[in-house]
Structure formats: C-alpha cells, structure tokens
Simulated assay, not measured.
Amino acid sequence: MSSAEKFRIAIERFDNALQNCGFLIKGGGDARADWKALAADLGEAFFDEVNQAGIAPELIAEPPRKRLNRDGTAEWSDKPKPLVNVEQLFIKGVCAVRANLVHGNKIELNDRDQRLIGESYAVLELAATRSGRLNVFFSSRS
C-alpha cells in the first residue's frame, strides 16, 4: 500500500472518529468533523510537541498550497506562510494535504508530496494518542 493510500485511509478513519467522539461542527445538517475543536482539545502544547519531536518540519515550515478557482481556471495559491499554532497545523496542514490529494489533481506525487503525506500521517498518529476521546475510540476498535 502506498503512503498516499495509507494516509487516505487514516484520515478517513480519523474523520469518522472525530464525528463519533463529538467533534462535530455545530449547527445541524450534515455531520462534519470539527478539526478546530480537535485542535482546541489538544491545545498549543500539541503543536509544541510536534515541533520538538521534529515529526512535521516541512509541513510546518512550508505548508501545502491551496487549489483555487481563479476565473474558471484551477490554479495553485501563492506559497503560504509557516504554520504557527495547532489549529493551523490541522486546517492549513493536515487537512490541506488531504484536500490536495483528493481534489488537487495530484495524479503523480513528487518527493515533496510524499514528505507532506508522511508528516501529516505522523501528526494524526500522535493526535490519536494525545486526545483522550480519540484514544478511547481507537483503543476500543483495535
């Protein structure tokens, strides 16, 4: 299984776990995972731990660009600024990697894509052990 396939499965499981653990975007309608709520639950200490452990240096220093619709043409955004907090790590980091993989026309992955996928996967693995609710959810299913 490729790293991209492994990451897609992991983030889909994670999305499901967030929904089942109460990390849901408020307001009703479609059940959607609330990654900001997860970031708040983990706190800034999680971002510091990721930094200190060195598990996502490129994801933090050079996060992925975003695919934009500019007058009917799909183009990549300008290079984003480095990530500075836990919410950005998930929203502009991990979730952006997923969006680019799924929706960003990433047919062939280059070395940078592979590194960002690997680092995002590592962030998910660590988050699963640091969030009490997610840890219980994943432990009960292994």
Rank of each mutant, 00 (worst) to 15 (best):
N69C: 04
P57N: 13
N100L: 13
F46A: 10
G132K: 07
F137T: 04
A99E: 14
V123K: 05
D78A: 06
A128E: 13
P80N: 10
D111M: 01
G93W: 14
I117R: 01
V97N: 10
R65S: 06
A74F: 09
I91K: 15
W76E: 08
N100I: 10
R70I: 14
G132L: 10
K92D: 10
A61L: 14
D113Q: 01
F138Y: 10
Q52M: 06
L134F: 02
S77K: 07
E125Q: 12
R133Y: 00
R133Q: 02
N110G: 15
E119I: 03
E75S: 09
R115S: 15
A99L: 15
F47N: 11
D113G: 01
F137V: 05
Y121N: 07
N110V: 11
K92M: 00
F137N: 07
A56L: 07
D71Q: 08
N51V: 02
V102K: 01
H103P: 10
C95I: 04
P82W: 09
V50M: 04
A122I: 04
E108D: 12
G93D: 13
G104P: 06
I55W: 05
P64V: 03
S131P: 07
P63Y: 11
G104K: 03
G93I: 11
L83Y: 00
G54H: 07
S120K: 11
P57L: 09
R65F: 03
F46P: 08
V97Q: 05
D111H: 01
E125C: 08
V50Y: 07
R115K: 14
I117G: 00
K92L: 04
L101I: 01
V50R: 03
E58K: 02
F137W: 15
L124E: 03
N100M: 13
E62M: 05
V84Q: 15
G54L: 12
R133A: 01
L59A: 09
Q52L: 09
I91Y: 12
F47P: 11
E62C: 05
V84C: 08
V136S: 14
F46N: 09
V50F: 06
E49G: 07
L126Q: 14
A127C: 10
N51S: 05
D78G: 09
I60P: 12
N69T: 07
V123E: 06
I117Y: 00
D71A: 12
E58Q: 04
H103D: 09
N110P: 06
R65C: 06
Q114T: 08
V97Y: 05
K81F: 03
C95H: 08
V136H: 15
A56S: 05
I60Y: 14
K81H: 12
S120Y: 07
A61V: 14
I91F: 09
S131K: 12
D48Y: 07
E108G: 04
F90S: 12
T73H: 13
N110D: 15
V86L: 07
K81D: 14
I55L: 10
L83S: 00
S77R: 09
A96N: 03
F90A: 10
A99Y: 11
A127M: 10
V123P: 05
D48A: 14
C95E: 14
N51D: 00
D111C: 01
K106Y: 07
D71P: 00
N100D: 15
N100C: 14
N69H: 05
W76G: 03
F90I: 12
I117D: 00
L124S: 01
A122S: 15
L89P: 11
K92N: 03
R130E: 15
R98V: 01
G104Q: 05
D113R: 01
K92V: 00
K106D: 04
